[in-house]
């Protein structure tokens, strides 16, 4: 058994090396397509988390101007305290907003230094008695006309925006990824086909002396699988780049409350990595299996 394993490894490596340029093309294409698959999964997960946070009690947020007057504030409070449409609310003052900001961007000290409590907009987080979307929208409209109000963000708006955004982005990525996955499977098929062609004579001799069909096939299947796995290996670092650069870019955007939750836990990235490896292996197996059954009439 050990001799067979050694034989398969040796033959596979030799074949990969002999076919270097095609091999590299196949591996890179797998890498790119799996990066897209992974990014699409990350964006989707980020969006799910962002909206989930917002859903912890339907609310809308009234952002005040940083320089609003006490009179304007009192008027808003008056409405909130007396209106039967409002169930409860929380006031986030400048200091609290600043503290939240600090927690959120603890890893970006220069960003924190660039703001002071003074410039943070205080806000009211409001839970209406009736969470119906039309009702919330009407309330939001009313509050937005009040003097001193900078803007009103409704949870429904926010959720819809993020969902729209993530659906669009992840769908575009997914379509591109599916096309590229097909392309990479074909490239692997082609590479394995070339490898088979390069060894016609050896294969003829193998059949002649009574090598089993699987013995002939396995090095080629392994070759395809290795393309897929190395490609997936290339895609995995890109997941971490997406996590660290792209998702955090959204978190830093000025619609802070909307994208606050736009992050994925490290565990998710590792999980996705495993899935990508599996997917890469399957793509490779599939491409080479087609090549082997079509061109290797053993």
């Amino acid at each position: 058994m050990i001799y067979r394993i050694w034989y398969f490894i040796r033959e596979t490596v030799v074949s990969l090396w002999r076919n270097l340029s095609l091999t590299l093309a196949a591996i890179l294409t797998v890498g790119i397509s799996l990066s897209l698959v992974g990014t699409s999964l990350l964006v989707r997960e980020g969006a799910d988390r962002a909206t989930a946070q917002f859903q912890e009690g339907v609310e809308f947020i009234v952002f005040m101007n940083a320089d609003h007057t006490p009179d304007q504030d009192a008027a808003i409070r008056q409405v909130l305290d007396t209106s039967p449409a409002i169930s409860r609310y929380a006031y986030i003052d400048k200091l609290a907003a600043y503290e939240e900001f600090q927690v959120l961007f603890v890893d970006k000290p220069d960003l924190i230094e660039s703001v002071t409590p003074d410039v943070m907009p205080p806000s009211y987080r409001i839970v209406p008695s009736d969470p119906d979307a039309a009702n919330v929208a009407e309330l939001a409209r009313q509050f937005s006309t009040q003097p001193g109000v900078r803007e009103v963000a409704t949870a429904t708006d926010a959720i819809r925006q993020i969902e729209d955004f993530s659906t669009r982005v992840s769908q575009v990525l997914l379509v591109a990824a599916v096309v590229l996955v097909a392309v990479s499977a074909m490239l692997i098929l082609n590479t394995v086909f070339t490898a088979i062609g390069a060894r016609r004579e050896e294969i003829e001799v193998m059949k002649l002396v009574g090598a089993t069909n699987w013995f002939v096939r396995i090095p080629f299947m392994l070759e395809g699988m290795i393309h897929g796995l190395i490609g997936a290996g290339l895609a995995i670092p890109s997941l971490f780049v997406v996590e660290n650069e792209v998702l955090s870019f959204f978190q830093e955007s000025d619609v802070v409350p909307l994208f606050r939750g736009f992050a994925v836990p490290d565990g998710f990235v590792w999980n996705t990595s495993l899935w990508l490896l599996l997917l890469g292996g399957v793509i490779g197996m599939l491409g080479s299996a087609i090549a082997v059954t079509r061109y290797l009439d053993v």
Partner: peptide
């Protein structure tokens, strides 16, 4: 040796 190797004979 190839003829023996591919039918799985030990080295």
């Amino acid at each position: 040796a190839f003829g023996l190797e591919v039918i799985g004979r030990p080295r």
